[in-house]
């Protein structure tokens, strides 16, 4: 309670900007989610180069893959000679690498390094 009072005493809310914030929140509802606001303090976004490098290193370290054949645009099953279950394992390894939780149906569609890089780069929580 004392803590709360102490913190409240330190918070300053300028009236003008609060009114603005009110306006803005109404805009959010109108724009139908065009402006995405992430409810977390997590705001470092990965660069495309970093995503690419880490995705490739995960794919290269997969035991059944010859590292020299991995490029930013290979299809796991057609180019690397893996089967569908290997594909599942790679996607799971990528999820762990980037601390992601990909819904099953979306993960099922990731079948090449290009798609994986694209998906992870566009994921707000990839870390």
């Amino acid at each position: 309670m004392a803590m709360r009072a102490a913190i409240l005493r330190h918070i300053k809310v300028p009236v003008r900007s609060q009114a603005l914030a009110g306006l803005r929140s109404r805009e959010w509802n109108l724009s139908g989610g065009a402006l995405v606001r992430f409810m977390s303090s997590h705001d470092e976004h990965l660069t495309k180069e970093e995503v690419m490098e880490r995705v490739l290193s995960v794919v290269k370290s997969f035991p059944k893959v010859d590292p020299s054949t991995v490029t930013p645009d290979v299809h796991f099953q057609k180019d690397l000679g893996l089967d569908s279950l290997d594909n599942v394992e790679i996607v799971m390894a990528l999820e762990e690498e980037f601390k992601l939780e990909i819904p099953d149906l979306e993960a099922d569609k990731i079948d090449s390094t290009r798609l994986a890089i694209e998906y992870i780069y566009n994921h707000p929580m990839a870390g």
Partner: peptide, 25 residues
């Protein structure tokens, strides 16, 4: 469960405060 995902330990926790509110230390 990954912390930020539904059911995770950080799900909807620690939201960024609205713009215009700041704590002066």
């Amino acid at each position: 469960i990954v912390p930020w995902a539904p059911g995770g330990s950080k799900f909807t926790r620690n939201p960024t405060p609205p713009e215009g509110i700041e704590i002066i230390y």
